[in-house]
Write a protein that binds this DNA or RNA. Structure first.
Lengths: 189, 189
DNA sequence: AGAACCACTTGACATAAATCAAGAAAATGT
DNA sequence: ACATTTTCTTGATTTATGTCAAGTGGTTCT
């Protein structure tokens, strides 16, 4: 759980005993490529920290899969509104590669929130950050070209393109696989 | 505050004294067309229920205004992550028409959350709903055409087009004013 | 009321991106 | 290791949308 520990301690000053309590609320689970972490229509009762691997969050619209987000190591992944508010979740979350996850259950999470102020603080940070990310994503969809979105993503996480089927990346950028292929070619020259 | 009362009671069963306490935490404020409810760079310490009028939430990118959302009567408007987590807000919120708002301050809000379980419940609903809205908006930007987004908006709120400058609506849909003009023409025939 | 401004529309044209179709490359299963 | 399937690339073409420019109608201000 070293990576998770780092992720938390990077964000907030925290004493050894507290971090240990927090870490002990997580358990580790391995997913094989293709396994589902969550399916549409279910309640989401778990939040996962991605130790290694990639997962994608997608919806099926008019029979087509639309990838909303791809999570990679060092990030948390969950269907946030369902996890927090127990509304019906409509996302699918699936492992794109073999994954190692550190998972916390909903009840453990809320217990921790009450008992460990530092976890509450960290969780608040996570929530605010997630919300800001969504807003940023919308903003970029509203006024940037495919080219610009590709460039930004490539700069932010070049490794992604080596580990994840490009069709998912294309979908996440709101473009077709063909267009992504051409942008990549341009980028290489 | 009748409209606000209705908005809350529509969502949850609540006794008379509780709703009165909640309503008394709000105060009313009028905005003139063009007035700002919030400016980028500030902390957001207020959440507003729109009794009458329209407001827009926008950011300035590369010198251009990008409208993120337009709020109309019966909705709440605030820079949510800033209001909840006191992170720096980067949205501008401006009255598009004269507006009547019912406002609650951040401290009052958190006091209410502790003292009135029904308000906490209602707030949870608001948060979950907001989050789901953002997700939906991203999804629609990722896989629908201008035409489809226009149709959906026109169906959801035809009145909007009579009260709000079309350039803001265009921006919110991620298209140019010219394209919106042509879609409207098509729609009329 | 008139001047100035602003918002919207329209047309001509340019461009980005989607679609369709074929083939190459890579990954997977046996 | 081979056959099969999936994923990616490439080219030709079409389509949707953006850009530029001009003109119209409406609103606001003094």
């Amino acid at each position: 759980m070293d990576s998770l520990k780092q992720c938390i301690t990077k964000e907030t000053q925290i004493d050894t005993s507290s971090i240990e309590v927090i870490l002990s609320s997580f358990y580790t689970r391995d997913l094989k490529k293709g396994d589902f972490f969550l399916r549409a229509g279910k309640l989401c009762t778990q939040m996962a920290f991605i130790d290694t691997g990639y997962l994608r969050m997608f919806d099926i619209v008019d029979g087509k899969e639309v990838t909303f987000w791809i999570g990679s190591s060092g990030k948390f992944i969950t269907s946030l509104s369902s996890f927090v508010f127990q509304t019906t979740n409509f996302w699918n979350i699936q492992a794109i590669t073999d994954c190692k996850l550190h998972i916390i259950d909903r009840e453990s999470h809320f217990t921790l929130c009450k008992q460990q102020p530092k976890w509450l603080e960290f969780d608040n940070h996570l929530l605010a950050h997630s919300f800001a990310l969504l807003e940023q994503k919308i903003l970029s969809q509203l006024h940037t070209s495919s080219q610009q979105r590709f460039d930004a993503l490539f700069k932010a996480d070049p490794q992604l393109f080596n580990h994840v089927p490009l069709q998912y990346i294309a979908s996440m950028l709101g473009i077709t696989p063909e267009t992504l292929s051409r942008l990549r070619k341009k980028n290489a020259n």
